[in-house]
Amino acid sequence: MDRRVAIKNLALVLGGATLFPKDILAGGKNLIQLNNLSISPAQEKLLAEVAETIIPKTTTPGAKDMGLHLFALLMLNDCYGKQDQQQFTEGLKQFAAIVAKQSAKPFALWPQAQREALLLSIEQKNDLPAELNRFYRITKDKTVQGYTQSKYFMTKKVVYELVPSRYNVNVPVKTKNTAVKHG
């Protein structure tokens, strides 16, 4: 995906959030301005890789294409309380430290399998620091929400109908898969 398309997609995801296309090209600044927490450009990039690990690009768009880490930050900034925001930033630092300890290579260059293994180990362990757990939970929840409530997902995967024009009952079930989302 070229940069222009990527920026357009980001705008779609973020709606009203402030974006600086110039800075995107420069690569050295944050893509999203937050007033309730402080995230460095490097942390933002790391978060982008975490989100991409959760929802990777396959034959269909992934987290980076859709700017899901920026959606997660927007939600964290606007809808979460101070304690969550502090735990998240602290947990993000702890996560970066674990990454650095495991490999000299930046997280972005790890093979997908290795990145997934690290995230899974956090998801499945319950003896980790509370901040790390909270960071992971918020990142995953908001990445998944950003994905399942994206235009792409709601028009191509589980279709949202704005105007269903019907309410049918006693509809026989043919397959367990639900093709259409009602809600």
Partner: peptide, 15 residues
């Protein structure tokens, strides 16, 4: 979980 397994699962909710 995470990754393409999660992505596929999200795209195929079951009744």
């Amino acid at each position: 979980g995470v990754g393409s397994k999660l992505k596929n699962a999200l795209g195929s909710p079951e009744l």
